[in-house]
Structures are given as structure tokens and as C-alpha cells.
Design a protein around this nucleic acid. Structure first.
Lengths: 195, 195
DNA sequence: CAGCTGACAGATTTCAATATCTGTCAGCTG
DNA sequence: CAGCTGACAGATATTGAAATCTGTCAGCTG
């Protein structure tokens, strides 16, 4: 039952920053704007994030983590690894395409953010290939997949499917035939994985 | 034995434009510069290319065609389709990586040009997937490959390997481990293709 | 008279003056 | 005294006036 203007916390700053980015876009969002939205001076924001870049990277990390978290459910399921892999790719592509289609401006904002925060993106890519590796290993243990280096194979799967999750291809995702191309690539990859 | 200032031809304009682009970069290269380099008025250039965009697209087309032409030799060889495919991917990756590494500024210039000339790029992609399709079909006829739709498979091969020929990934091509990733992706794709 | 020139209008880019923002810190406040 | 404020210096962004460029075309030239 506490009212909104509680103590200033990193979490509240991140929420306000997301809102400011949504409203103003990445080029015009300033930390003065964020401070104003919170009713504090901009000096207070610097008490929690030492730099504007650090603040933006933290927002980026939250956004990327939301995607990995939603996919981790599929990885954890107790099912045929091939079906899980297929569903994982489908879910990743669908999530990205939905975000890009529903709110193109916000998507463009996060594209700018990811380009500038190399560290958070690197961690995100590592997390996703880690999820792939777990499913590949499950398939190898079940005898349906065959590979001598599950980690390298996981990275290969990730790179071979970039056309369908790398934001830079977003403009091509709505063109006719993309769905069929996605299916053809996934089919080819899963065939190559079979024992 | 004719001296340089011959009659003004589309070919000579294209050569001069390439030179101006190399010198000034895509942002500062003007058609006045091109005319000056040729010793004519800029009005004369417009007699051969109706628009600055058309001129730039023609330059782009020439550059893209040079790549496809160098690869068509591999397609035409009378050899095991699997070996040809592997060599084709290797040659494409090597050519792109060499261009990006040898003269990064010129490569950046052509990246800008390709982004603005959609038509020429579309044709180039169609040419490359056409080359892939011919090798896939040869493999199907030889009984070493299996697919119900060689054209869709060719496009899948192309998209699955974009990490290694799409210029947007050029900054990642020099990072250690890229070679191994390339091999892993090609191995996976060729495995998926086998009968 | 086929091909080139150069002046022109409107669009785009450049540049420098001005305004705003980032990051710091001495001091205020509850 | 922990946490916040607001003034400040240097860096970055905005703005609008001036310069340059694109595309056209009437007329020149060989």
C-alpha cells in the first residue's frame, strides 16, 4: 500500500528509463529526462549507475534476459530433443518477429541499444548457445543425434539460423516466403544432426 | 594507341565513379566530382545515367558481378558436387573476408552502396542461389544428395551460411574461432544434404 | 543534328553559433 | 551521516543561414 514515490532504487530507475526510451527514442532519451520522470535530480541517478552507458546497458540486459528466460522453459521440458529443438527455434523466431512487427519503433530502439552494449549481447548469445548445447547433448545421450563436439554444433546451429533471429534481418521477416525458408533451414539443420 | 580523353561512354563513367568513390567515400562522392575527373560537365553524365542513384547502382552491379563470376568457375567444374559445394562456400567466404580485410574503407563504401541499391542486390542473391541450386541438382542426379525441392534447399543453404558472407558480419570475421565456426556450419549443412 | 555546356530552381549538406546534456562534487537536509 | 541537490566545466547536439549539389533544359559547337 506504499505510494509511488518510494526510496530511489536501481529497479525503479530501470523502469523509468525503459519508459523514457519508449517515449523519446534512443537518440533523444537523456538522463535528465529519466530523473524528471522520477521526480529527482539527475545527480541521484548517477548514484546508482556510474554512467549513461551503464544505465542503457542494464536496460538492454533486462530486455535480452526476458527472451532467454521465456525459451529456457522449452529447454527444461522432458521431451524428444528433436521436437524441443524445433519448438525452440520456432519460439525464438516467433518472439522476435512479433516484437519487430508489433512496435517497430521500440524494436528499433532496442536495436540501437544492443549495438552499443557489446558486453550484454555477448552474454546473451552465450546463454542462447548454452540452451542449444543442452538440447543437443540430450539428443546425443538419447542416441537420436550424433556429433563429436556438442558445443561447436550448438554454435553452428545458432549461426546457421541467424537470418531468423538477428534483428538486422527484421525487415525481411514479413516478406512472403519467409516462413517456408525458415522451415527449410530448420529441416536441413535437424537432418544434419541426426545419428 | 588512342589517348585517354576519347568519346564519353557509360563504361568510362563507371570507372571514374569507382575512382571517385574510392577517394572520397560514399557520403562525399558527387556527380560533379565524377564529371570533373572526366573533364566534362556534369550535364553530360546525366546523358548516360538518368539519376545519381542509377549511376551508383550500376557501379554496385559491376562489383557484385565480379564476385558471382569468380564463383561460377567452381559451379562449372566436372567434379563431386559435395566437394564443389564445400569449395564454393570456402571461396565465397575467403573472397569476402579478403576484401573486408585488405581495404576496410572501400568495403564500407560498397556496404553503403549495396544497402541503397536493392534491385542489384536482389539479382545478385538470385544469381548466387542459382549457382547453389545447380550444384545441389548435380548431387541429386549423382545420388549423393537427397531433397524434394532443390531450389528451396539452395536458398536454405544460402541463408544458413549468411554469417560468413553477409557484409554486416564483417567485423566478426577476423575474430579467433571464426574459421572453426565456418567449418562446423558447412559440415552440418553438407551432412543434412546427404542422401 | 548528336552530343555537350553551363545557368538555373529546388533539394540537400555544411558550418558555426547556441543550447542542452553528461558527469562531478561541495554542500544541504531529514 | 546517507542520500540528495544543483551549479559547474567540458562534451555533444540543435539550429538556421550560407554553400553545394542534383537534375533540367535552352542553346552552343563541331
Amino acid at each position: 500500500m506504499t505510494p509511488t514515490p518510494q526510496t530511489l532504487t536501481a529497479e525503479r530507475i530501470l523502469e523509468a528509463t525503459e519508459e523514457v526510451l519508449r517515449r523519446h527514442g534512443p537518440a533523444k532519451a537523456t538522463v535528465v529526462d529519466v530523473a524528471r520522470a522520477l521526480g529527482v535530480s539527475h545527480g541521484s541517478v548517477y548514484r546508482h549507475f556510474s554512467t549513461k552507458a551503464a544505465l542503457r546497458e542494464a536496460v538492454t540486459k533486462r530486455w535480452l534476459d526476458r527472451t532467454s528466460d521465456s525459451l529456457s522453459g522449452i529447454v527444461a521440458e522432458d521431451r524428444d530433443p528433436e521436437a524441443r529443438l524445433r519448438d525452440w527455434f520456432t519460439a525464438l523466431f516467433a518472439a522476435k518477429r512479433r516484437k519487430a512487427g508489433d512496435d517497430p519503433e521500440l524494436f528499433a530502439t532496442y536495436m540501437v541499444l544492443t549495438e552499443e552494449s557489446g558486453g550484454a549481447v555477448g552474454e546473451h548469445l552465450a546463454e542462447l548457445t548454452g540452451q542449444l548445447r543442452r538440447m543437443v547433448q540430450a539428443g546425443v545421450e538419447a542416441g537420436t543425434f550424433s556429433t563429436d563436439d556438442p558445443d561447436a554444433t550448438a554454435r553452428a546451429l545458432f549461426h546457421a539460423s541467424r537470418r531468423f533471429h538477428d534483428p538486422r534481418y527484421a525487415p525481411e521477416w514479413e516478406q512472403p516466403g519467409t516462413e517456408a525458408e525458415f522451415d527449410a533451414v530448420v529441416d536441413l539443420l535437424l537432418r544434419g544432426l541426426k545419428a
